[in-house]
Design a protein around this nucleic acid. Structure first.
Length: 168
DNA sequence: GTTCTAGAAC
DNA sequence: GTTCTAGAAC
């Protein structure tokens, strides 16, 4: 995030970079300069920052060349791998060689992925983010297409199936 | 987080 | 026989 070559956008509060291992055609991370270790550390005082991160995400999406043809979502992993909170901004094609296993898939297509809007509402209402029990088990559920809900047995089958929804 | 690979699944 | 995943190692 410090490397100017990686920065897609920055302002006084946040920086946007491309994810090093994109799981979709367009995968950005919005990071605050202020270090917040995880969603557990988020308090009401951070709400304005979360809102700003979200609006920066929207701006990045609108500048995307495929804005009109792809769907996008913004959200946080309930249990992130990298400390320092980061908002994922992702197109919904899941067409990427870096999408390789069940964990990759389920972390973006189940409730393991907490919608930015929902996170902001939780902070607004409760002053904190509650992660449900059993969230980790979501990484192991069967592979299911996020568009038509069809269940696929293997990652290669899933990838083949996704081509029907998102032809190049 | 990724890469590698043994052995499960087919 | 090949494909694929899950877990170890990093």
């Amino acid at each position: 995030m410090q490397d100017p070559k990686m920065q897609v956008f920055k302002d006084e509060k946040v920086v946007v970079i491309k994810d090093k291992y994109p799981r979709v055609r367009y995968h950005w991370l919005v990071l605050p300069w202020e270090s917040i270790s995880s969603l557990k550390a988020v308090k009401k005082e951070h709400l304005a920052l979360l809102k700003h991160m979200h609006s920066v995400g929207e701006k990045i999406v609108q500048d995307c060349p495929d804005f009109s043809t792809l769907q996008f979502r913004q959200g946080y992993h309930a249990i992130p791998s990298m400390s320092h909170i980061h908002l994922h901004v992702i197109s919904q094609d899941f067409d990427s060689p870096s999408l390789k296993n069940k964990k990759h898939w389920n972390s973006f297509t189940t409730e393991y992925f907490l919608e930015s809007q929902d996170v902001m509402e939780m902070v607004e209402r409760n002053g904190k983010v509650k992660v449900k029990d059993g969230t980790n088990e979501l990484l192991k559920v069967p592979l299911r297409c996020h568009v038509c809900r069809r269940e696929l047995t293997t990652i290669p089958q899933l990838k083949e199936h996704l081509k029907t929804h998102f032809p190049r």
